[in-house]
Structures are given as C-alpha cells and as structure tokens.
Simulated scan of single mutants.
Amino acid sequence: MLPRRGLVAALGATGMLPFAAHAQDNKAQERWPSRAAQMIVAFPPGGQADVAARPTAAALERVFGQAVPVVNRPGAGGILGSASVARAAPDGYTALMALSSLGVLPESERIMGRAPAYTVDQLAPVARITADPTVLVVPTGAPWRTLEEFIADAKRRPGAITFGSAGNYSTLHVAMAMLTGSAGIDLLHVPFQGGGPALTGLLSGTLDSLASGPGPALPHVREGRLRALGCWGRERIPGFETVPTFIEQGHPDVEFYIWSGVFLPAATPAAIQERWREALRQVCAGDEALRRALDAAGSPVAYQDGEEFQRFFRDDTARLVRAVQRIGKVD
C-alpha cells in the first residue's frame, strides 16, 4: 500500500488525475448554478440594455433558484463593462446583457489608433431578447413637428442642432449618422456615458434631439414631454403607430435596430451555455411578468438563440462596422 502522498504522485504520473479533475468539472456543471450569477450592463441605469436586463434577470431567478443581480458597469460607451465580461472567469456566473454596439466598439478602438479592450470572439452569443428600431425624439417645446421641418432647419443652420448618444460609435451615434448621411445634414454630436443619461439630457433641455430605443422614450412621449419624428424600422413601431418610418419619408437606406442579447465568456463550457439558453428560452416564451414588463416598456420580446442568433449577430455586426468605418476617426 502506498501512502496517500505516494498514491497521488503515482496517479499523476499515470495521467489519472486529469480524469479526476474532469469528473469534478462535470459534477460542478451538473450542479450549476450553485450561487448567484450576475448580469452585467455596460451602461448606466435607464437605457435600453437596463430595460431588458432587469425583468430578464428577475425571471431567470425564478428558473435558476438563485439570485441574478444586475450590475451596471458603465464607461467608455460600453467598452469597460463588455471587456470585464470578456475577461471574466468562464464559469457561467458572469453574463453580459449587450446591445448591438458590442460588435462595433472594438472597430472604433482600432479607428482611434488604440488596441481593442476586447474582441467579439472572446464572447459567446447565447440569446437575443429584444430587437427594436430606434426612434428620433425631440422635446415637445422644439420648433420641429415633422422630420421635414427638422431637416430643413438643420440645413439652414449646419452644426447648430445637437443630438446625444451613449458615446462615440455607440448604437445611438451610428443610427443618427445613417440619418444625417442620407439627409445631407450636419448635427453637433454630444456623447454621454449611456442612453439613460442622454435621455435625461434631452428631457432637461441640454440636447435638441436623440435617437433612442423605443422603450425608454415611450413613457415620455405618452406624457407629452417628447415628440417622435421618425423611426429607423422597416415597419412602424408598436406604441408609435402614428410615427412614420424614415423609409416612408424618403430615406430608403436608413434602417437600424437596437437589440439586446445575453453573452458569456467564450470559454464557458457548452453545457453551461446551454443551461443559460434553455432558461432564457423558457422565460421569454412563458414568463408573463417578463413579457408584460418588456411590452409596457415598448420593447417586446424578439427571441433568437443558437445558430439563428449567431448568424444575426455576425451579419448585424458586419453592417454596423461598415457604418463606423464611414464615420471615421472622431476627435
């Protein structure tokens, strides 16, 4: 009989310890989740990612039987929070509720001459939760009642009308760049640290206009504080049925969507990724509280997962990267 230390050494020498470790890993995956799994939002509270994350996390708690706290980690237009998940331990306990800017930000870093803080291949797409066209909103006290009036005034006063965004090269920046390019107008870009602060800036009178997700903007439109002039979708948005699309208004190439989706570190075991996917599929299909919350926010469920979401993410990212390259370097 070998003493315990000798037995361990002998097992290691014969290559049996890796099998034991593998078995332990399998057991850990079978028990997953055994503790809270946090959901990172790379923007401040109040923006589109936050609107999607909070009811989704609450629904997941009912499936996982564990807490799913939402942690806002803003900075650099979404780069800091996204990079933190890309570098997180691949154990399934750190997920990202991302927006479509996720694939754009690394390219924007390259354009600015910086090494990207993360790359998209460091993150695994798990499931899409929502997909909403953005909507152009202005304060009700602004002089423009239609898109035509807004564009005409912008042409008379190049660079005088401001618009906000969640940061340079963010989804809100790219969406507005599509419109200004199509309309041939020059607006003054004012970047914020997220869509929530940008919306606050619009409501407080700091900004003249904003490309917003429909969810955050809808309550203020209903209350009469904001006016919508157009939307970036191919079809009109629920809750904004009287607001024509830009395609209807003569801008056929101005089409853009803010989508929200859950990502995990790329090295997360396939079994744990599938556990997340199964849970998200379940809550998006059958959790009435989640669906009511997103419907009330004007951002209904538009679920995708698996190869369908991977293909959507790849194609959408390629289109947005081309738009960012057209914007070029921002001083």
Rank of each mutant, 00 (worst) to 15 (best):
R319L: 14
A21V: 13
V321H: 08
E278M: 10
I111T: 02
M112Q: 14
P125A: 05
F19A: 15
K155N: 06
G261R: 08
P216Q: 04
G306H: 08
A53R: 07
E308L: 06
D295R: 01
P238F: 06
L123M: 08
L105Y: 11
M97D: 14
A23S: 08
R281N: 13
G81I: 03
R277C: 04
E248P: 14
I247E: 13
Y93W: 11
R157G: 00
D253Q: 15
V301P: 08
Q66S: 04
R234S: 12
G164M: 11
I272H: 05
L188I: 05
P69R: 00
A124Q: 15
P133S: 03
A131K: 11
A21Q: 13
P158V: 01
E274W: 01
G167L: 01
T140Y: 13
V283P: 06
G77D: 01
A271F: 00
G47Y: 04
A83Y: 03
R222Y: 03
P252V: 05
W259E: 12
A160Q: 12
F163P: 03
A131R: 13
P238A: 02
S299T: 14
R314K: 13
Q122P: 03
D331I: 06
G81K: 02
R227V: 01
F313H: 03
L210V: 06
V8H: 09
E235L: 14
F263A: 04
E307G: 10
R156P: 08
A318Q: 09
L202M: 14
D153A: 11
P269R: 02
H189K: 01
G46F: 05
G230F: 04
R157N: 08
F64L: 09
E248W: 10
P300M: 11
S182Y: 00
A37T: 14
G213S: 12
A217K: 12
T200N: 15
E223C: 02
I327H: 11
G286S: 15
D25A: 13
A160L: 09
G78V: 04
D295K: 02
S84N: 09
Q249H: 11
A49H: 13
L80G: 10
A88E: 02
P219C: 05
